[in-house]
Design a protein around this nucleic acid. Structure first.
Lengths: 260, 260
DNA sequence: CGCACAATTGAAGCAGCTCAAAATAAGTGG
DNA sequence: CCACTTATTTTGAGCTGCTTCAATTGTGCG
C-alpha cells in the first residue's frame, strides 16, 4: 500500500528516502474504525494525532439543539487533529463516515519527527495552510453561494482532492456520504440537497450510481460551482503539474519548526 | 515601540526578554495605510508578512459577479498573511477597514526569527491554529445559525478578542465596520443586518453609538448567539488556567497606551 | 423476509432577499 | 461654519430559495 501520507506531503516538495522511511515508521500503530464513530470528540485533549489511511471522516461541530455543521471531509492522507498537538484541547470533533484504518502517531513521536526532519515539518505546516484555505473557500460557499453552486463546488473539490491521492479516475470517484451528511456540510436541509442533486443530474452535469459520483460534464460543473482550484494549491510547490499561478517568481519558504 | 504582537503571542505562553526584543526588532518597518486599501491582493506572492499595529482589516474573497465574503476581521496584533510565507501565493485578499499602521516583516527575517527562537515559532503556529478555529466557528454560524444568532455571536467574539488586546473595556468597544461589511462577513444583506441589529437593540442586548458597541446584556447576547468562547483558546496555554472571563477581567488596560 | 436507514416527493410557510426610496450621518471644499 | 456631496442607515413592500412537516418509496443487509 503506497503511503497516502507520503503522497499527500510530497505535494509540497519531494522527500528523501530517509524522510519517507521515518514517516512510515511513525505511522505503524494502526487502529480500525467502523462507520459513524468518533475518532476524537469535542473537548478532548488527545495525546496523539490521527492519520487517515483508508476510509472517509469529517470534522464537525454540534450545536446545543442537535444541528450539526460539518466543516471538512477528511480523506486518506489527512492528519485530522494536529490542533491537539498545538493547542491541546479540541474545539471540534472528528467522526468517521465509513469504516477505515487510522494510524495513530503519539505527540512525542511527531515532535521527534519534525525536529529531525525539517522538511517534514515544513510540509506539515504547508498542509495546515492548505486546510485553512479549504476552510475559507468553504466559507465563501456557505455565505455567498446558492445551494446549487455550493453542491457543484463541493463535488469539484472532492474530485480534485481525491485525484491527488489517486482515488479518482477520469472524474469518477466514490463519495460514501449520505445526503444528510452533505446537507450538514453545506448548511442545507436534506430535502433541498436531494432536489438540487436531482437538478444537477437532469442537467447532465453529474451521474450518481451507488455512492459513485461521475462528473459527466466537468467544465459545466466547474462553472456551475464557480470552481477555481487555485485555493487547493495543488502541485504548486514542486514544479510538477498544477495550474499556472497568477504571478510568477517562486520562493521556497522554510518551515516554522514544529515545537511543542 | 508598541507591541500588541507580543501581547498577542504571550497568550500562548510567556516569552523571554530576548524573544520580546527580537520581535520588536523584526517589526520596525512600519507602513501607514488609509481605509479601504488592500494590504495584499488575491494572487499576490508577498515577500513579507504584515503585522497589524493599529486599525482594523479583514480577509476577503471576491466572486466573479462582485459578491464578497469576508472571512475574518483582523485586529492589532494579528499577522495576516502568514500563508504567503508558507504557500507562496495568496488565494484571498486582505483589505483595511480603517486607516492604520502595519509592520512589514520580510520573510527572511521571519525565517531567522523562528529558527533562532523556537518559542516564537511555536507561538506563531499556535496562533495559526487559533485562526483556523475561528474560521471553523464562523463556518458554523454561516451554515447553521440564524441571522440573529450570527450577529450576536460575532459581537461576542469581537468583544472577547478585543478585550485580550486591551481594546475593549467592560463590554464596550469600537467596531469601525459598516453594516455592509458586516453583511459581507455574515453572509447576509445589508438590509437584513440593519433590521436584525435593530432587533438586538430593542431587546436591550446591545447599544450602538457612533461606531462604538456596548454589550448591555452580555449574558443575554451570549445566549442569543450561542457563544461559547472555548474555540478562541484564550489563556489556555499560559498556565493561568480557569474560565477566560475571570482571566480577562484582570487584564491590565495599557494596550491603548502602547498603541498610540 | 423484514427491519432500519437513505432517498424521494408534496405542500405550505417563512427567513432572508430584492428593489426602491427616504432619512441621516459624515465628509469636503470654500 | 455652512452649503454641497457622498456614504451609510433606515424603512416599505413584494418575492423566492430554502425550510418544515409529513409521508412514501427504495435499498442494503442480517
Amino acid at each position: 500500500m503506497p503511503h497516502s501520507l507520503i503522497r499527500h506531503l510530497e505535494q509540497f516538495g519531494p522527500l528523501s528516502e530517509v524522510e519517507k522511511h521515518a514517516l512510515e515508521g511513525a505511522a505503524t500503530r494502526v487502529r480500525v474504525f467502523g462507520p459513524d464513530q468518533d475518532l476524537v470528540s469535542d473537548g478532548d485533549r488527545p495525546t496523539d494525532c490521527k492519520l487517515i489511511l483508508s476510509g472517509f471522516a469529517c470534522t464537525y461541530k454540534l450545536l446545543p439543539d442537535g444541528r450539526r455543521q460539518i466543516m471538512s471531509f477528511q480523506i486518506p492522507g489527512d492528519i485530522c487533529d494536529l490542533q491537539g498537538f498545538f493547542l491541546g484541547e479540541m474545539d471540534y470533533a472528528i467522526g468517521t463516515l465509513t469504516a477505515g484504518r487510522v494510524a495513530v502517531i503519539p505527540h512525542e513521536e511527531l515532535l521527534d519527527l519534525t525536529e529531525t526532519h525539517p522538511r517534514i515539518a515544513r510540509a506539515l505546516s504547508q498542509s495546515t495552510f492548505v486546510d485553512a484555505a479549504i476552510f475559507r473557500e468553504w466559507m465563501v460557499g456557505l455565505g455567498r453561494r446558492s445551494a446549487y453552486a455550493r453542491i457543484a463546488h463541493l463535488l469539484c473539490e472532492m474530485g480534485q482532492r481525491l485525484q491527488v491521492i489517486g482515488l479518482a479516475q477520469n472524474g469518477s470517484y466514490d463519495l460514501p456520504v449520505t445526503q444528510t451528511e452533505l446537507a450538514d456540510a453545506l448548511g442545507l436541509t436534506t430535502v433541498h440537497v436531494n432536489r438540487t442533486l436531482q437538478q444537477l443530474r437532469h442537467e447532465g452535469l453529474i451521474t450518481v450510481r451507488g455512492g459513485t459520483v461521475t462528473l459527466s460534464d466537468p467544465e459545466g460543473l466547474k462553472q456551475a460551482g464557480e470552481f477555481d482550484p487555485g485555493y487547493l494549491h495543488v502541485g504548486r510547490m514542486n514544479g510538477i503539474d498544477g495550474p499556472p499561478s497568477k504571478h510568477l517568481q517562486r520562493q521556497e519558504p522554510h518551515a516554522l519548526r514544529l515545537e511543542r
